[in-house]
C-alpha cells in the first residue's frame, strides 16, 4: 500500500481551530527539472511549534527559505498572518513588492551558519535592525538588546565580535538578534547542525526556553529528533518534496503510520 502522497493531499495534524498564521497553497519549487517542492499544502496555527524532519534534499529547508523570501516559489500561494506573501503563477516573473516586504516583517530566521555580521559586536548585531529598520531609538534598542542577551545567557559578551565567540555563543546571539525584531513567526534552519557536539546543548536549551515561554509561532527544521519530540506540538515528516506524514510527536515517533517515516526514523535513531 502506497501512502497518500498524492499532490492534492492537505496535510493536517493537530486540528487547526483558529485561522492559520502560515498557509501554503499548492506551492511548488523547481530547480530546472528537479522538483524540490511538489504542490505543497501546509498550514501552521498561531503559536504552534512545528518541527520538520526528513532526509536531506527533501525540501524542508526550502519551505523556510520561501517563507523568508530568500527563495521564490515556482508556483502557488503563501499567506502569512492573513496577508499574501507569495502568489505566483507558473512561469511568472516575480518582483519584490511593498506588500512582500511588509509581510515578511512578521517573520524572523535563525540560520544554520549563524550569519552574524563579523564587523559588529554582539550588541551591535542585535540593535542594527531595530534602529535602522524599525526606527527604534538607540537607548531603547540597547536596553532591549541587553535584556535579550541576558535571556540567551550572554549578558557578559555584548562587546565581543563573532570571531571571538564559540559557535554556540554565536548562534545564541543570532537568536537574540532575530527576537529583537519581535517576529510573529520564528524560523530555525537546522540551528545546531554547524555546531560541535558539546555546544549543541546550550543552543537547544535557549530554543526550548522560547518554546515553553512564548506564544510565538516556531517552525524548525532539525535533525535533533529527541529535541523535536520534546518541544513540538506537531512534527511533519518530509520526503521527496512532499509532506509524508504529520501529527503530534508521540504519534510520529512512537507509532508512525507511513513506511517512509518508519525507515527514516530507524536510520537516524540507530546511532
Amino acid at each position: 500500500m502506497r501512502p497518500s502522497t498524492e499532490p492534492q493531499a492537505v496535510v493536517t495534524g493537530a486540528p487547526v481551530t483558529t485561522e492559520p498564521i502560515i498557509r501554503f497553497q499548492n506551492v511548488s519549487k523547481n530547480w530546472g527539472t528537479n522538483q524540490v517542492l511538489k504542490n505543497l499544502n501546509f498550514e501552521v496555527a498561531p503559536g504552534e511549534k512545528v518541527s520538520i524532519i526528513g532526509p536531506s534534499g527533501s525540501g524542508k529547508t526550502t519551505i523556510l527559505r520561501i517563507l523568508m523570501t530568500l527563495e521564490t516559489p515556482s508556483e502557488g500561494k503563501v499567506i502569512v498572518g492573513g496577508d499574501t506573501l507569495w502568489d505566483v503563477a507558473l512561469g511568472q516573473k516575480v518582483r519584490e513588492t511593498k506588500q512582500l516586504r511588509e509581510t515578511r516583517r512578521k517573520i524572523g530566521m535563525v540560520f544554520q551558519q549563524f550569519n552574524l555580521f563579523p564587523h559588529m559586536t554582539a550588541l551591535e548585531n542585535i540593535i542594527e535592525a531595530p534602529i535602522h529598520v524599525l526606527g527604534m531609538n538607540k537607548a531603547e534598542a540597547r536596553e532591549r538588546a541587553a535584556e535579550l542577551l541576558n535571556l540567551v545567557g550572554l549578558g557578559k559578551h555584548m562587546n565581543h565580535t563573532p570571531p571571538q565567540m564559540s559557535g554556540g555563543q554565536q548562534q545564541r546571539v543570532a537568536i537574540a538578534r532575530a527576537l529583537a525584531m519581535r517576529p510573529k513567526v520564528l524560523l530555525f534552519d537546522e540551528p545546531t547542525s554547524a555546531l560541535d557536539p558539546e555546544l549543541i546543548g546550550e543552543v537547544l536549551s535557549v530554543i526550548r526556553n522560547l518554546a515553553h515561554t512564548t506564544d510565538m509561532t516556531m517552525l524548525m527544521v532539525t535533525h535533533e529528533m529527541r529535541f523535536a519530540e520534546e518541544i513540538s506540538d506537531r512534527v511533519v515528516m518530509f520526503d521527496n518534496g512532499a509532506a509524508v506524514e504529520s501529527g503530534p510527536p508521540a504519534q510520529i515517533f512512537k507509532d508512525p503510520q507511513q513506511e517512509r517515516t518508519r525507515n527514516f526514523l530507524r536510520a537516524v535513531l540507530q546511532h
Binding site: M68, L70, R105, M109, N115, F117, E128
Partner: peptide, 17 residues
C-alpha cells in the same frame, strides 16, 4: 558570503541599508 545578505533580508533591511 551569501549568508550575510540573507541575514539582512531576514531582518527586513532594504538593499540600500
Amino acid at each position: 558570503a551569501k549568508g550575510q545578505t540573507e541575514a539582512c533580508i531576514a531582518l527586513g533591511m532594504d538593499p540600500a541599508l
